[in-house]
Design a protein around this nucleic acid. Structure first.
Length: 477
DNA sequence: CCTGGAGTTGTCCTA
DNA sequence: TTAGGACAACTCCAG
């Protein structure tokens, strides 16, 4: 009797546990696990540097978990799949869906092609709690406001798929003729940049599982409040693991929900954390229904916004040399760790877009390259949000003051001093506004403004009013 | 079609 | 010192 042979195509679901597509493939017989790298795809948003580093290690971990049976290829997906199907007598091709516009286009083509060839071809939901086409208003159009979206599809509902069990006894097919290994994908740059990020992360499925447990045990209590403070541990740091699918959103959702039922956690904390998964879903929903999200203002009246184009400011922002300590701390955390605390993402985003008046595309691109959790949906939706042109966006008058924000959310300065060590000896009173410090205070702290630490590159009051005027100049509708 | 309530994350000024 | 209102008006969404 012929055993069914299925190709399982890994993409952004680099895990064995709760992997719907893999689970179905495995149930039916032997599985040929593959990964395809196609450097020609992705358009303006080809995988960024930090993500490449993460992907390299994530694939290596997956390969280990598959006992060295991951088959890796480079080139056009359709051509590679077709050849593999023919050479290996394959009956079916399965994968979990991705939602980047280029992916949807390519997947649709591949599916149509294989259907025509009478080869079974199936896709599954392995990345989202609910598909973007499942959560719609009663008139079947998509939501533009988070709260009703979340109420409708997620809050207190039971439509979300429960996690499957782990695929344990995989009958795996190795392509013996294949000469390509993970190293040949050249995901690691020659630069030593990624060495800095290494200590902060435990990449792969096991690391993701551990991170979830650590968060549930140590970070969930007090999450609602504590998540705002970058020096506290009330953050999950699951974003890169979720992006690469090392853990499923469903597992996170149900385990957090279960914790909420034990009575040891306040419902507020649990609900707040769950809603963050909801924001991830909302971003995917937006990207699916507005494929131009990474490029075009969701609110077209912003098309005439009078952006500035000061390359020196942009450079200073990227390097964390703006002269505003909380902004610089955030930007340097990004560079050093491949991650930035959510509160800081808002602060540095507001500063770029409103104080420096630089186009949100600049921030979007830089984050795309530097973040290990860079995700097309979340990244573009969030940049549009902070710029004010997105869905449910921040009102135009909401301009973060980096001095106030620093004092409020890093009151003892531990976060800022960690990433801006040249200000380590500044007293709290002047940490977030060193330009106001008297000469003797600066001297005592070993700070020479314009030398050991920059002077502010732009005046806050001036730039705030300039931003307000710019917004006021937009057409009314 | 109409109506009314609401919309992640702020800042500044005034009393 | 602190609390409350202004900042604008619009679109979204449910009933």
């Amino acid at each position: 009797m012929h055993t069914k042979k299925t190709i399982f195509w890994f993409r952004q679901d680099l895990r064995l546990s709760d992997n719907p597509g893999l689970y179905e493939a495995e149930k039916q017989g032997a599985v040929m696990p593959i990964y395809i790298q196609d450097e020609s795809q992705g358009g303006d948003f080809k995988i960024g540097e930090a993500s490449r580093w993460w992907l390299h290690h994530s694939l290596s971990d997956l390969n280990n978990n598959l006992k060295n049976n991951l088959n890796v290829y480079q080139g056009n997906a359709k051509e590679i799949l077709l050849k593999l199907v023919k050479d290996n007598n394959i009956d079916a091709v399965y994968w979990n869906r991705c939602y980047e516009p280029w992916r949807i286009k390519e997947d649709t083509e591949i599916k149509t092609f294989f259907k025509g060839q009478d080869i079974e071809c199936k896709s599954f939901n392995g990345s989202l709690l609910l598909e973007p086409w499942q959560v719609l208003k009663s008139d079947n159009t998509s939501y533009k406001v988070f709260t009703p979206f979340y109420q409708k599809g997620y809050f207190g509902t039971s439509c979300i798929r429960r996690p499957t069990s782990k695929s344990e006894r995989l009958d795996l097919i190795k392509d013996q003729s294949n000469k390509t290994g993970i190293t040949q994908l050249n995901l690691l740059s020659d630069k030593n940049w990624h060495q800095k990020m290494k200590p902060y992360w435990n990449i792969g499925e096991k690391g993701a599982q551990e991170k979830l447990q650590t968060f549930l045990n140590e970070g969930l209590v007090g999450y609602k409040e504590g998540r705002n403070f970058p020096y506290k541990n009330n953050i999950s740091k699951l974003s890169p693991h979720l992006h690469f699918g090392e853990i499923s959103s469903n597992q996170v959702w149900f385990e957090a929900t279960a914790k909420g039922m034990t009575g040891n956690y306040s419902q507020e904390d649990v609900d707040c954390f769950l809603s963050e998964l909801g924001w991830r879903e909302f971003s995917y929903n937006l990207l699916y229904h507005f494929p131009d999200l990474p490029h075009k203002n969701l609110q077209s009246k912003f098309d005439s916004f009078p952006w500035s184009d000061n390359q020196d400011f942009l450079k200073a922002w990227k390097k964390g040399q703006t002269g505003y300590p909380i902004v610089d701390a955030g930007m340097r955390q990004l560079w050093q760790t491949g991650y930035m605390h959510n509160r800081l993402r808002m602060i540095v985003g507001s500063f770029l877009v409103k104080n420096l008046l630089l186009h949100w595309h600049h921030g979007e691109k830089w984050f795309w390259d530097c973040l290990v959790d860079a995700d097309l949906a979340s990244n573009s939706a969030s940049w549009q949000w902070i710029a004010g042109c997105g869905a449910d966006a921040a009102p135009y008058f909401r301009i973060f003051n980096p001095v106030t924000q620093g004092g409020k959310f890093d009151p003892e300065g531990s976060y800022t001093r960690q990433f801006v060590p040249e200000l380590a000896h500044m007293p709290d009173k002047y940490l977030f506004k060193p330009w106001d410090a008297p000469q003797d205070v600066l001297k005592k702290a070993g700070v020479v403004l314009g030398n050991t630490y920059p002077k502010p590159i732009i005046n806050l009051e001036f730039s705030r009013h300039r931003a307000l005027e710019a917004f006021a100049s937009l057409p009314k509708t």
